[in-house]
Design a protein around this nucleic acid. Sequence first.
DNA 1: CTGTTAGCGCATTCAC
DNA 2: GTGAATGCGCTAACAG
Lengths: 338, 338
Amino acid sequence: MAATIRDVARRAGVGLGTVSRVLNNSPLVSPVTRKRVLDAIAELRYSPSQIARSFASGKTLTVSVIAPFFTRPSVVERLRGIESALHANGYSLVVFNVETAARRDTCLHDISRHDRSDGALIISLTPREDEILALREAGTAVAMVDTAAEGMYGVRIDDIFGGEVAVRHLLDLGHRRIGFVGDSDEEVRSFNFSSSRDRHAGYLRALAAAGVAPRAEYARYGAHGRYDARVLARNLLQLPEPPTAIFAASDTQAMGVLEAARDLKLRVSGDLSVVGFDDIDVAEYLGLTTVQQPLFTSGKRGVEILLSLLAGDPPALQSEVLPIALVVRATTAPPRPT
Amino acid sequence: MAATIRDVARRAGVGLGTVSRVLNNSPLVSPVTRKRVLDAIAELRYSPSQIARSFASGKTLTVSVIAPFFTRPSVVERLRGIESALHANGYSLVVFNVETAARRDTCLHDISRHDRSDGALIISLTPREDEILALREAGTAVAMVDTAAEGMYGVRIDDIFGGEVAVRHLLDLGHRRIGFVGDSDEEVRSFNFSSSRDRHAGYLRALAAAGVAPRAEYARYGAHGRYDARVLARNLLQLPEPPTAIFAASDTQAMGVLEAARDLKLRVSGDLSVVGFDDIDVAEYLGLTTVQQPLFTSGKRGVEILLSLLAGDPPALQSEVLPIALVVRATTAPPRPT
DNA sequence: CTGTTAGCGCATTCAC
DNA sequence: GTGAATGCGCTAACAG
């Protein structure tokens, strides 16, 4: 039914290879021949079979991306950067949404059978050592976005520093009783996320630098999302000596904190200061003070790194670190004088 | 480097076709032979080449989805439903993000070369007649999500009814001066979106049913998103006789309306009632009254429809209509007595 | 510059 | 039940 390259060759009265050359923009074709071929292609409404092409060339012009919870605004924005860069380079994007630990493992395993795609992008998930080994052994081209791992190329931010910046801001405002709401250990472990943990480390570091002793009861962990964060924050705020400020490991969790404040009729920033992380779209709407990171750019850079890997010239830096910035809005202020 | 089916055959001491049969779970293989083959596969760590497989079989086990502005929360949620259903059926998902009219056209055109994928899902975009023709001619399997078009299968909601429900709610509360904020004609035209237009039609219908004469100056259109909606709503609210309620064509635009109210120090719902559409995640956070539609389900159903199409037994209904529901929250109340 | 050839790895006929 | 043979449509390497 559909015309093949052979039909075109016959129609144009040329060899099969010549058509192929025209298709691939080889310079080794005389203008007249090229035109004849192009005419035949147009007349036959020929369109080359991508699968056959991939099969013969070994290249699929497709990249897989493994995205945990791809509905999270921060992930979506990274994906947008990825899709955009990929499309600009003629690549297609196949998406794997990881919402369970089991799927995390199978996805990470499957990409080593580098077959359906030329390479993979891994968002936020850190491969374990054995997985890294398998990937390397299989020779799969991989770029990591928002994480780093031994010997892997990628782009990320300094989450520890980010946490530090957020908490230092609160300290500078005069807060001393500062809470933290982040991802549960279980979640961190089963997916091997690192950002919440690192941001917590930054929180501790900032406290230490200011000579403020951390209190165990001020750090709470739950499933990512508004709902858990809301409960955790409520608990925090009902402590005998509640924190005057809370640093949430993400803007989404910060929203839960804001809800908790609302629940308890606390005024933000009067009674409670809140800092988030990511600067997702709604943060501005909410007037949320947060740590901004270049989400779109991270996806874009991830693609660029992957493409250089595929092209055979790895980037100079293994792990590129993107800049972050504190965005001060309306949810932070000095604590109420006691 | 990687083992092929031939290696496995040799290793197992069987013919090449037998291995293929084992791979495809053909019953025409004796248990002992099957075991021998499976052992060889395991020993060689063989994994069949998907491209070769697709090439030989003509099936790619991949579905393309064309999503306009896939960062919009409503679209993301549909995508999640799509990814989930696709994965459950062993299909991969390749995503095309459409953010310009030009890309809309090329994407819609490209899927007719049904080659890289077995079929396509089109979200929210309505193909024009010539595009439908091309799709049909090419024999591409397509399911539409959130739109409908002559002769195409798909799943959607009744947006006109949805608009009507929203506005009737406002009328029931006693509002008579009701504004509308929706997508600009230009946007609607270049992408061929239909939902905003339909919801506006529902708005008019509800007004008519209540015997309220529509006022041209009460309907404003701009680019989708908070920013334009905010400006439009501000204009609306600064009219000599401003509306007491505004129906926004989407929750995102409703957020812009809420911002406008904040700008003008109007209290929602005291001074102004607001209704959105979609019931995206933040709607609950905002206490936004809105029209809920089954986003995840729409994606899931879209996939199911597409798969039946691919399986050769088209669904009974061409265009399935999903239910919607008014969710009354805190942004609507009776108008202030005059 | 151009035509011809040999596979890419597998599914799918066929004979046996 | 099983093995061998053909071809999917194209690219790449080779002669010319």
